[in-house]
Simulated scan of single mutants.
Amino acid sequence: MTFKTTFAAVIAAASFATAGFAADVTVMDSYARVSSKSAKSGAVFMMIENTSENGDRLIDARSDAAKLVQLHTHKEGDNGVMQMLHVEEGFAIPAGEIHMLQRGGDHVMLMGLTKSLAHGDNVDLTLVFEKAGEVSVTVPVDLERKPEHGEMKHSH
C-alpha cells in the first residue's frame, strides 16, 4: 500500500469515526473531554445539522461509557455563578440549521464513567431524536482541543 493510499484510508476512517447520519440529521466534529485521568465524569461536544424541512429535537443520549448520560446546559445563577443543568426536554434542532453542543453551553454529560478516558480513546454514543430516531456516533476523546475549536464564527 502506498503512502498516498494509506493516508487516504486513514482520513476516510477518521471522518466516519466522528460523524453520524440519520435521514435528515448529521452529527459532525464530535469529541469528548475529561478533566483528568481519574475524572468520574466527562462531556461530549458536537455539531448537529438538521437538513430537513421540519424541526427536530435531541431528546436523549446513551452510552456504555457512563452509568448516567444526560443532556446538559450551562446557566448563570442568581449569584452570577455558572451552573450546569439537566435539560429534560432536550435540545431543539430547527429545520435547516446547525445546533452546537460546545463548552460553556449545551452538551452531553457522561456521569459515573465506567472506565477512565485518555486522549485518543473512543466513546460509543447513541443520540435519540424525536423524529430522526437513533444516531450512533463513535466519539474520539480529545484532551488537546482548544475551547473555540469548531465554533462557528460570524462576521458582519
Rank of each mutant, 00 (worst) to 15 (best):
F3N: 09
F3L: 06
F3G: 11
F7G: 02
F7N: 07
F7P: 00
F7I: 02
A9N: 08
A9F: 06
A9T: 03
A12E: 14
A12C: 05
A12R: 06
A13Q: 15
A14S: 12
A14I: 14
S15K: 07
S15A: 10
S15F: 12
F16T: 06
F16D: 05
A17T: 01
G20K: 02
F21D: 06
A22W: 04
A22K: 05
A23W: 10
A23G: 14
A23K: 13
T26H: 10
T26C: 05
V27S: 00
V27T: 07
V27K: 04
M28D: 11
D29R: 11
S30A: 13
Y31P: 03
A32G: 04
R33N: 08
S36K: 11
S36W: 08
K37V: 15
K37F: 15
S38Q: 14
A39T: 01
S41D: 10
G42M: 03
G42C: 01
V44I: 11
V44S: 02
F45R: 09
M46P: 02
M47G: 10
E49S: 10
T51C: 08
T51P: 07
N54L: 02
G55I: 06
L58D: 01
I59R: 06
D60N: 14
D60K: 06
A61Q: 05
A61L: 03
R62N: 05
R62L: 12
S63F: 13
S63E: 03
A65R: 01
A66I: 07
A66S: 07
A66V: 06
A66L: 13
A66F: 15
K67S: 15
V69R: 02
V69Y: 03
Q70N: 11
L71E: 02
L71K: 00
H72S: 03
T73M: 05
K75A: 11
G77K: 11
Q83H: 13
Q83M: 13
Q83L: 14
L85I: 08
H86S: 14
E88S: 15
G90P: 13
F91K: 12
A92G: 10
I98V: 08
I98G: 03
H99S: 11
H99T: 11
H99Q: 10
M100Q: 15
Q102C: 06
G104N: 08
G104M: 02
G105Y: 03
D106V: 06
H107K: 07
V108N: 02
V108W: 00
L110D: 06
G112W: 08
L113W: 00
G120N: 05
D121T: 04
N122C: 09
N122A: 15
D124W: 04
L125E: 01
T126K: 13
L127R: 02
V128Q: 06
V128G: 06
F129T: 11
E130Q: 14
A132M: 00
G133N: 12
E134D: 12
E134V: 09
E134M: 13
S136Q: 09
V139L: 01
V139E: 01
P140Q: 01
D142T: 02
D142G: 03
E144M: 07
E144Y: 12
R145D: 07
G150N: 03
S155T: 12
